[in-house]
Design a protein around this nucleic acid. Sequence first.
DNA 1: GTTTAGGATTCG
Length: 565
Amino acid sequence: MSSGSVAPYTYTPLNLLKDGTVVNVCGVVKFFKPPYLSKGTDYCSVVTIVDQTNVKLTCMLFSRNYEDLPVIYKVGDIVCFRGLKIQLYKRELQGISHYGFASLAFDGALGSPVIQRTSSTSFSFTVGDHNMVEALRAWASTHVPASSTSLKLSDAQPMQYCDLTCQLLGKAQVDGASFLLKVWDGTMTKFPSWRVCIQDLVFEGDLSHILRLQDLVIDIVVYDNHVHTAKSLKIGSFVRIYSLHTKLQPVSSESMTSLIRMEFHLHGGTSYGRGIRVLPESNPDVDQLKRALESADLAAIQPSNDTCQSENKDNCLTPSSSTSDLVSLYEVERCQQFCATTLTDHHYLEKTPLCAVLKQKAPQQYRILAKLRSYEPKQLFQSVKLLCPKCHSLQEVPYEENVDKILQDAATKAPESKLQCTSLYDSEVWSTEGQGGRQVAVHFMKSDGILPLSNECLILIEVLGIVPLQYVFVMAFTFDDGTGVLNAYLKDSEKFFQIPASEILTDDNLQKNLEKIMNVICPPGIQIDAYPWLECLIKSYNVTSGTEKRICYQIFDTMVTEDII
DNA sequence: GTTTAGGATTCG
């Protein structure tokens, strides 16, 4: 027993939780949504924790008071919850705050002082709790990857979601659903910030100070549910903005001849933990931020032209730069800055370097960030194949003169499927002459629901066992991310290039588009350093040929970004 | 002793 009148609390390991119980738990924060106003009466915070048992628990925490929800600043923080009810939701256990719920939160950094963050007076902190936090810190340092979303403005790239720690310099309500925040963190973005027109708005903040800081200040627009949080923020306060979206302004002739600008949005909703949280002066990240602001402020007051010119020599646009210089600079910047592909799903997967992918067994799924060193086939029309969705075999698209041969070589078994006429094709069963009266099912593919003229009609013969075949792009990509080289197949009917494989052989424009895309993602005649990054999902699988076993990789749920299509 | 949300990006 600990000294004093309060008995030590018992914490239940996350692998021993039972439905219907009320428990105390401790864990490392794996994911969280900063407290936000729910549609009911309370503030809500969703927190996923993990402990040494490697079991995760997602907790729904509600409180009438914002301050009573756990004070979490970042992934990796450590929390202790008391009075957490365990229940089943979608066949998984989840935690939900029960009557008398209380929480403590701590910095997760190994060796930092164990200072509890809570306003909950009922939460007594014992030696046992202290040891629990230290043990979780030690475990997390080797088992929980550090949060990678937090960054400085100077490291912000377009088309990213990131957590920004900054100071609020100005604010203004734009309209009912959007609110402007002017912030800085002492560093300069790669592209100057967009500027929201504040002419007709009620602006709060020191505009002369903001103007003096120039491009050290960025404009963030927050939307919908974040407007009420933004309204309550005090000028000068230190805030963290979670899942801030960075993007480049749409390319227009105007932006080509001036400068490309970067937009900052905090979109509506709370997906991926989108939100804003005020950081106290005592926060170690604020300490660091203050120092950066002080030196940046000094530099802004006494600008050194020499430093500016020598640092920006490579990126500097002189008044004599021609439009084509600007465009090519933009193209280079764009290629270096952001991904030419995006994921269509599984955004929560963490990125894995290729060297790590290559060491692991199959099957697995990975998110990778790499450059396309090379690809096959170079003759792009050769990448179009016919895929049998039934047996997954691939066939070449047959030349017309080969079709007779294919029919002669067809298998001997009778068609199995029930014949039906659909909007895609009409079907008939024909008895062959001179082949023992073998029956062959023939499908006449329709175009827009209508049978085309016979010489234009695609005919599928079911004894071939390939009914109906699907056109796909099949390519071999060689990825390189600096840590390793990996070959992956692309097998895709239309998602990746946003071009239907079924139409490319007959459409010159689509062929040109495909060529253009390949020239962007794997540009000929330049160093690989200047190639764009590609973010891809790949899955590994085992392939056995004879006695040889090897691992293959295939791209999935990935597409090229719309602005290069 | 009810509800809220139930991780899984907007499309401005």
